[in-house]
Design a protein around this nucleic acid. Structure first.
Lengths: 239, 239, 239, 239
DNA sequence: GATGAATGAGCTTTCATTCAT
DNA sequence: TATGAATGAAAGCTCATTCAT
């Protein structure tokens, strides 16, 4: 819990003098890299909130895992709610950023769509943290996300990318015309989300481990099939 | 979820005299009816847990809303965990029972499938209580549902019904052969669940009200289209 | 817990119709032998208070074990305190009665003393209930026993018996003269009480089981030796 | 038990300004001294547990008397059980330490034995706290003491001291040979313990105050006589 | 005499938050 | 910037006791 992550540089602390123990002995003034401390708190908070939900998360646990004093959390983030919002926004940023790595303008539309689906599926399945954070927030009726000023803005690039793929597919006669991008994204999300969000209740219902790698591989194929079937021009329309 | 189940008659309580306020004023002797009290607690608990999740729910609030002493809850249900399990099981029972009202053996397979999808969609969308209960349980890593002895058993009839529809559709050459019933149910669930479970975060992302009736109507059509496209023999298989 | 003790006759209940189950089915009016019910409650209370002490004892447990309604306990005994007093008095009566079975007037004084010591030792060691009841009461600073009107009176016969033995021993030149009966009884009690009252802490200190039968046998000899050494005329008096 | 141990200096708190009342009035900033607070809690806990037993003791009362917030108790001691264990161990330490002040190796054996008996008698009689703590623990069937890692270890020095006295006495021909040290200690304890542990029930039986100083003085002599009579070579052995 | 549903006060414990240093 | 001792409100749960029937 108290080990310093290797990736967190603390340049102004001499390596030969381990911080925490020296501090414990009171031989060193409390002075560190503020930005790093802030970030460390945020990283830990993201895990904590993801693992335990909002109500289940403990400020004490976060401060211990981030190796900072409780007061620091309040100093940097004000209160539990705001820390939670920060964690939520940071989590959204990760997936939104990743989505922007796709080359939607030049890649073959079907392939681009497959990549978007795969990226979404893998992101949600690989680490349930994001999914759990989203669930927790929705259980709170969006009380916190509602206050976010940046999350709505992060959605536009995603929608743009999706529309670009759809338009190019339609122009090439591969996708049928009557598709709403927003609604389609929700379908992608629904199909990629459910076995992660409901892992445990589904597990209880079907007595199966939905984190099993082989099962996930098959499920990703099915999800892709379902969504591409729907997009295909040849798809049977509902009469 | 807040309606008193039709099977629980309380004939000797005059409808025009609401118990709680009258009792609070001390003008009416306490009605002693164990079964009714038990049920009232369960009904209230289902709402409370659905609204606030497990950690966020308060025994005090439940006892107040059920108009009983806190001790009664412990007398009837043991502890918060067991009350929560009872609420969860009761909720599952409602949807599983409703699924069994479908006539999957005689109805035209496509129509039967549409009905199953519609039933699932409507059940989840009409009252978010069930969805929220499920989410809460999954956030707790299935800690409670794992102890349920009846939930696993409730799944079999659903799978049987789904398999019957699929087989009959395949026999009539309407559905293609390569469909796993369990996986397909998860797809149904995913597509019907997401806009309820993620209502608030999606609302924040897209600045739209996902409880809007007109939107739900359209969404139900899309979901049905997606799932039937996938089932259809003409569907483009992934090469 | 619910089995009826064999010694408790319930003449007016036909044997072929087990009481509790019939009552559960509501087929039998609630009507029993009042005195037997009262006694059953007391018997159970003695065990309960002995096992858990006053604070640790539960009215609910007593009513369940006595197979009566909670209200009956209040009906017959008023409240927890008074039930506890009744249990305490009944317990004292058992040992005081037993002490009176000794033939102190005709038996050889040394032998009579040995018998009194053995009786006390065995009574306390065989069933720790009495000891624990006494301990519990003393932990409560005698709050309840102080209200007893019969316990002080029960002591006199014991003291009389002890004095008789001592006088006869002194008259025969077996015991030395300077012995206070009351003080001597306290010595008997202390030596016979400690390994029962302090069974667990002594067990922790010495890592030994002080309920072991062989150890008890030896201990009884030592206790007798100690007390008889002190009584003996030849005993070295402190200069 | 209520005195502040000499080793815990609180130099910067002016003696003429009692902390609790001043702080209650809000005129003095809270003294932040973890060790002192911890000790204060323990001191109060020892009294509280001694006075009311485990079940009867109240965390609220302890926190009030120690002039700290309830949470502090849990912060320092975890829970009621662990606080009780700490109090128990601290109490044992006091008597075990005191026993080690005897010079068993050089003092005349009879005199050393007298001193050990007197020390034990006085320790138990002067302040009933220790006795009551022991009783409470035994009423709980040793549930807490069983977890102690230090109490068993504290017994050895006592046994060693006792064996030293006995051996030297036997070597000098003062004590007879057949004496088990452990059993003999239990006899000492039993004779010194009973009038304290059973003060109230004995008081009720004999209508006498067993905390009376003069009675205690006589009793101490009797106890010493009894034990020395038994040790003496001239003691009449049981045939 | 007997029932059992119901009560309310009080318990131990937890936790976000503050504040003097 | 950083510390950690301290707080107060509220949580889950228990239990002696009452009361209509």
């Amino acid at each position: 819990m108290k080990t310093i992550p290797p990736g967190a540089p603390e340049p102004d602390i001499p390596a030969e003098m381990p911080r925490s123990s020296a501090r414990a002995r009171g031989t060193m003034p409390a002075r560190r890299n503020a930005a790093a401390t802030r970030q460390r708190i945020l990283d830990v908070a993201m895990s904590e909130f993801a693992e335990h939900g909002y109500s289940g998360s403990r400020i004490d646990r976060i401060s211990a895992a981030a190796d900072v004093n409780v007061g620091m959390i309040y100093h940097y983030y004000g209160n539990k709610d705001d820390l939670y919002l920060a964690a939520l926004e940071a989590s959204y940023k990760v997936i939104r950023d990743r989505e922007q790595t796709l080359d939607v303008a030049h890649e073959d539309p079907v392939s681009a769509m497959r990549q978007l689906i795969a990226l979404t599926f893998d992101f949600l399945s690989t680490d349930p943290c994001f999914v759990r954070l989203i669930m927790s927030e929705n259980l709170m009726m969006g009380r916190v996300v509602r206050r976010s000023r940046i999350i709505p803005g992060m959605t536009q690039p995603l929608l743009d990318a999706l529309r670009t793929i759809l338009k190019r597919g339609q122009a090439e006669g591969l996708f049928h015309k009557d598709i709403d991008a927003e609604n389609f994204y929700i379908s992608i999300l629904g199909l990629c989300f459910i076995h992660v969000s409901n892992r445990h209740t589904l597990g209880s219902m079907f007595q199966r481990n939905f984190a099993d790698v082989e099962w996930l591989r098959q499920r990703k194929e099915v999800v892709t099939d379902i969504l591409l079937s729907y997009l295909a021009v040849s798809a049977t329309r509902v009469p």
